[in-house]
């Protein structure tokens, strides 16, 4: 039994309205038996300061990443995590978080690597919930363990690796969602994130610059479908039938854009390059373009 789709009129304009819920929907359904609300933040302590009643926490650094290899947990690790959070394979999972849902979108993307069928974002994230003066609690739920199946991670359909990205230059549209200074190469890291820097600055040749925040309204909710089409389809000329690859610095901001393209605009094949600039900008002999222009594809 799947939880009902949010009938909010704004969502009806999107390609997949079933992937987004409002704060009001969460207030009404957070307690449903087949719904688990998940908070996923950049700040590891925010959840502890108060969260949506009944929500569990999933931390990207400590729970979704493999602790040794730069990769995500494997099927067994994911099954253990889901079991501990009280999530079954048919649970409707609703994710929300800080920073306009960057980390929430990232968590959702990881859920999809394991083919979890029904996972949604709460539009506006944590900030929206708080701005509306909704209830928060500090008690963490202690869910009963579930039997979550061990599912092999499917990296092929929504995840891109460096060699594939390299082969895509000049063939597929690439979207760089970082800040303009990171794109041009003036900065080798994001303002305030020097530890996630790179040896070289610039962007992958031919990549279009569309900072992730262009998809978000000022309050952190997603822009209306028509505005989004204006940016990605009219301005960039992308078509929903095309394969697209998005990247940023470590893959979290591009998860936000990945969500927009795939579920709000209905692009059939969108991949997130999670290695992103912290891999590309440190790799030896990969092509780099500097400045405001996307740059040319050079023959390999």
């Amino acid at each position: 039994m799947t939880a009902p789709t949010d009938q909010h009129p704004k969502f009806a304009q999107y390609a997949h309205p079933e992937r987004l819920v409002s704060t009001q929907w969460v207030a009404e359904h957070a307690g449903d038996e087949d719904v688990v609300v998940v908070e996923s933040d950049e700040d590891v302590l925010l959840y502890e300061t108060g969260h949506v009643p009944g929500a569990v926490k999933i931390d990207w650094h400590t729970e979704l990443n493999d602790p040794v290899t730069r990769d995500y947990v494997d099927g067994e690790g994911f099954a253990r995590l889901m079991s501990a959070k009280g999530i079954s394979r048919d649970t409707t999972v609703v994710v929300y978080g800080d920073k306009s849902n960057w980390w929430a979108a990232y968590a959702l993307w990881v859920f999809e690597l394991f083919g979890h069928e029904d996972v949604r974002l709460m539009d506006g994230g944590r900030a929206q919930w708080l701005a509306e003066g909704r209830e928060t609690v500090t008690e963490a739920p202690a869910p009963a363990a579930t039997e979550y199946p061990v599912v092999e991670r499917d990296d092929a359909s929504i995840r891109a690796f460096l060699p594939e990205v390299r082969d895509s230059i000049g063939r597929l549209p690439l979207i760089d969602v970082r800040s303009p200074d990171e794109y041009t190469g003036r900065r080798t890291h994001m303002p305030d994130y020097p530890e996630e820097g790179a040896m070289r600055g610039g962007h992958i040749p031919t990549a279009h610059s569309v900072p992730w925040a262009r998809a978000a309204a000022e309050d952190g909710t997603f822009k209306e479908a028509e505005e989004l089409r204006g940016i990605y389809q009219e301005e960039l000329g992308l078509e929903p039938g095309q394969d697209v690859i998005a990247y940023c610095r470590i893959g979290e901001r591009s998860s936000h854009t990945w969500f927009v393209l795939k579920y709000l605009l209905g692009f059939g094949s969108v991949r997130n390059y999670d290695g992103s600039w912290t891999e590309w900008g440190n790799a030896v002999r990969v092509p780099i373009a500097r400045g405001e222009e996307p740059g040319e594809a050079v023959a390999a």
Partner: peptide, 9 residues
């Protein structure tokens, strides 16, 4: 700021 509890910690 209070919305950065880890850093404050």
């Amino acid at each position: 700021p209070p919305e950065a509890p880890t850093t404050r910690g």
